[in-house]
Structure formats: C-alpha cells, structure tokens
Amino acid sequence: MKHLFLVFFSLSTFVLFSQIQKDTSYTVISTFKKEIKKFPFIKIVNSVEDISVTKKENIIYKKTGETKLHLDAFFKNDEKNLPAVVIIHGGGWSSGDKKQMHTTANAISAKGYACFCVEYRLSDEAKFPASINDVKDAIKYIKANAISYNVNATKVAVLGCSSGGQMAALVATTNGKKEFEEKSSLKQSSDVQAIIDMDGILAFHHPESKEAASASKWLGGTYEEKKEIWENASTLTHTDKNTPPILFINSSQPRFHAGRDDMIAILNKFGIYNEVKEFPSSPHSFWFFEPWFDDMINVTTQFLDKIFKQK
C-alpha cells in the first residue's frame, strides 16, 4: 500500500509540474542569439530605470480557476490623469513574459504615460479567446483602479509586439463586443482609444501570413478544421468605422505585415487616422535592440501625444 501511495504521489507531482511549466523559448537573450547572425551590429537595449517613474510589480488583476494573473505598473506619482498604455508581450501566443517589456514601459512612462505590462494565459494553458479575455479584464482593472495609478480612464492605448501586436489590434477592434469578454465583477468598459501594433499580423489566413503552426496551437486547430475561429481571431474581420487610430511599427520582414495594407485600406475608407513606421534592414523583434529602440519610443510617444495630448 505504501509503495502504491508513493507511485501515485510521484505521478501526481509529475502531472502538476507538467501542467504549470511554461514555454520559455522566447526571451531577449534567445532572440539576440538568433538575430545577431544576420544582424551582427545589434545590441540589447541597456535598461536604465528612470527615477521619476514608480514601478509596482506582480499586481493580481484576475483570478481564473487556480490561476492568478498579474500586471506590472509604471507611472509618475507627481503627474495626474495620465493616459494609460497596456503592453502585451510577444512569443507566438505560447511563450514570452511581461518582464521583457519593462524597458519599453519605463521609457514610455518617463514621457508622461502610465504603462502596464500584462501577463495573460498562453496557448498551453488556454486557447483563444482566453488571452484576449485576459487583456480586456486587465484594462477593466486598470480603469477601476485609475486613481491608484494616476490614470485617465478615458484615454487608454493598447500596445503589443509580434503576437502581442496581433492581440493588441484584436482587443481594440473588438471594443464593445461582449463575446470577447468573460464575466467580471468589474463594471468598467474594456474599450481602448488607440493601438500600437509592432509587427503583429492582422489576418491569419492570408497570402502574406506564415503563422500557421503557432496559430493552430492557439486557435485549437488548422484553418481547415477551425475556419470560423481563424476568421474571428483576425483583426481584419473586425476592422470597421469604429476602429481606433492605429500606429503600425514594422520590421523589414514582410511576413509580419500580413493584412496591414488591407486594414489601412479600410481605415482610410472611414477616415480613421493611421501611421506606418517601417525600419529598414531590421529583425522581427527590433524592440529589444539598438539601433531601433530610441526611434521606436519616439515614434510611439509622438503618436500617443497626437491622439491623447493635442487639442
């Protein structure tokens, strides 16, 4: 009996460990090692924290089952009613970590914004639209606690990189669509007023897209198996007259622009403000590296200033 108990305990422990172990393949270091072969001049951005920015880490914004989801906040204590920027990390919907966006959050916050790096359920934990639900709940939490972070709850942007960029665009183009939200005790709206998409695709089943493997994992099957879900997860499906202004910041890698020009055509039809900044001769995850980081921050904050601070 004792032997059976030990076997059961060992198996239970193994199952539990395998359930909570996350994919850590997408990191700044792993990306650097990959990209330096093609771009030998790149350097990882030196993270220097601005002393005027307050940082609060691992704030629980949501509990779902046994899972607690966290966000990290960056804001200036001496400034009130700051526009908020919700930041979504990349990693093919299956990897990545909110901490890898801290350098970006600190830099944007130093220029007069409250930034929030958001943790969300990855594809090994939950399929689409769980991560979209999570980001929308993070937005509700930030608005509900706006006073604590000096946030103007009527001025919220969502920024994402790679798969996070795809998510950011989808979060914003589904403003007000309850099918993309889970039940919540928070009554605040999850609507946002601006989008910054850094190399996130806008359509999955598209001639330019090469994300079939990662997409299938997140969307629960291939396009042939889950056509409706693939279409519903694509930003192009939801782009219309209500889409917020958007800034596209792109690398020189065409596969990560999939659907961008199609979306711009729709935005222009409705007179919705949009910008494109494309860095020549750049790798996909340019936001981690010099010589692009400073330009990226400047372009981003200039866009945000135009949307939120200019009369």
Results as ranks from 00 to 15, higher is better:
135 V>N: 08
206 H>N: 14
135 V>W: 05
72 D>F: 04
217 K>W: 05
111 K>W: 01
97 D>M: 03
269 K>T: 13
269 K>E: 13
251 S>C: 02
48 V>W: 03
137 D>S: 06
10 S>H: 12
113 Y>P: 14
4 L>M: 12
91 G>T: 05
106 N>S: 12
170 L>C: 06
231 E>F: 08
289 F>H: 12
150 N>G: 11
82 L>D: 12
214 S>A: 02
135 V>K: 09
17 F>I: 14
258 A>H: 04
182 E>G: 07
91 G>M: 10
22 K>L: 07
283 P>M: 10
28 V>F: 03
155 K>G: 01
181 E>M: 14
83 P>S: 07
19 Q>H: 07
128 F>N: 04
262 D>A: 00
221 G>T: 00
292 W>N: 07
202 L>K: 00
195 I>N: 07
219 L>R: 00
115 C>I: 05
311 K>W: 06
14 F>L: 15
150 N>H: 14
310 Q>E: 15
122 L>F: 02
64 T>Y: 08
140 K>T: 12
74 F>N: 13
34 K>Q: 15
19 Q>K: 03
64 T>S: 09
291 P>N: 11
269 K>M: 01
21 Q>N: 07
298 N>Q: 11
88 I>C: 10
204 F>C: 02
127 K>Q: 13
78 D>L: 11
250 N>F: 04
168 A>E: 06
11 L>E: 10
253 Q>A: 06
257 H>S: 11
75 F>G: 15
310 Q>N: 15
178 K>V: 13
159 L>D: 06
66 E>R: 02
255 R>E: 04
207 P>H: 02
12 S>M: 07
269 K>S: 08
36 I>W: 02
103 T>C: 10
29 I>K: 09
73 A>T: 13
311 K>S: 14
163 S>A: 15
46 N>S: 15
48 V>C: 09
87 I>L: 09
51 I>V: 11
126 A>M: 11
192 V>T: 06
232 N>F: 04
32 F>T: 03
72 D>A: 14
194 A>C: 13
50 D>G: 09
30 S>T: 01
68 K>Y: 10
302 Q>G: 12
239 T>H: 01
24 T>C: 04
133 N>I: 06
280 P>D: 09
274 N>P: 12
294 D>M: 08
93 W>C: 08
2 K>L: 15
24 T>E: 04
152 N>Q: 12
181 E>G: 13
81 N>Y: 06
303 F>P: 14
143 K>W: 02
279 F>P: 13
301 T>E: 03
294 D>K: 15
68 K>W: 01
107 A>W: 02
200 G>T: 08
138 A>T: 00
216 S>H: 05
26 Y>R: 01
34 K>W: 12
241 K>N: 10
77 N>L: 04
163 S>Y: 03
61 Y>Q: 14
26 Y>E: 04
125 E>H: 05
278 E>T: 11
153 A>V: 08
76 K>P: 11
262 D>M: 00
291 P>W: 10
34 K>P: 02
221 G>P: 14
246 I>F: 06
264 I>C: 14
138 A>V: 01
232 N>G: 03
54 T>D: 14
223 Y>E: 06
204 F>T: 03
146 A>F: 05
69 L>T: 07
39 F>C: 10
213 A>L: 09
86 V>K: 02
218 W>E: 00
44 I>H: 02
36 I>L: 01
288 F>E: 03
17 F>D: 06
275 E>R: 15
291 P>Y: 09
191 D>K: 11
66 E>K: 08
177 K>G: 01
208 E>A: 04
173 T>W: 02
48 V>R: 14
177 K>F: 05
